[in-house]
Deep mutational scan, measured.
Amino acid sequence: GPREVTMKKGDILTLLNSTNKDWWKVEVNDRQGFVPAAYVKKLDSGTGKELVLALYDYQ
Rank of each mutant, 00 (worst) to 15 (best):
L13F: 05
G48V: 08
D30A: 09
V52R: 00
V40N: 00
R3F: 15
G1R: 13
K42E: 06
S45Y: 11
E27V: 09
A38P: 06
T14K: 10
M7Q: 01
T6N: 13
I12D: 00
V26M: 01
D11A: 05
V40I: 06
N17Y: 05
G10R: 01
F34L: 06
L51D: 03
G10K: 02
R31V: 15
K25L: 15
Q32H: 09
E27I: 10
D11E: 07
L53S: 04
N20Q: 08
V26A: 01
S45A: 11
K41I: 14
D44Q: 12
N20R: 08
K21I: 07
S45V: 12
T19D: 14
K49H: 11
L43V: 10
V35R: 00
L13S: 01
Q32W: 15
D30V: 04
L43Q: 04
N17K: 06
E4Y: 15
Y58P: 02
T47S: 12
R31H: 13
K42T: 07
A38K: 15
V52C: 09
T14V: 15
L55Y: 03
K8L: 07
P2I: 14
N20H: 10
V26N: 00
D11Y: 03
R31M: 14
V40D: 02
R3A: 12
K25S: 07
E4Q: 14
E4S: 14
Y39V: 08
V40M: 06
K25V: 15
N20S: 09
W24C: 04
Q59C: 12
L43D: 02
D57E: 05
A37W: 02
W23N: 01
L51Q: 11
K9G: 04
A54I: 05
T47F: 11
G33I: 15
A38E: 11
Y39H: 08
E50D: 12
A54R: 00
L51N: 05
A38S: 15
T14C: 09
N17C: 13
L55F: 03
L53I: 15
R31Y: 10
N17V: 08
V35H: 00
P2W: 14
V5W: 12
V35E: 01
Q59T: 15
V52M: 03
V40A: 02
N17H: 06
V40E: 02
W23F: 06
L53T: 06
G46A: 12
D30M: 08
L15T: 01
T14W: 09
E27F: 06
V35Y: 01
D30R: 07
V26E: 00
G1Y: 13
I12W: 04
I12E: 03
V28A: 12
P2E: 11
Y39Q: 05
Y58G: 01
Q32G: 05
Y58N: 01
V52F: 05
P2R: 14
V40G: 00
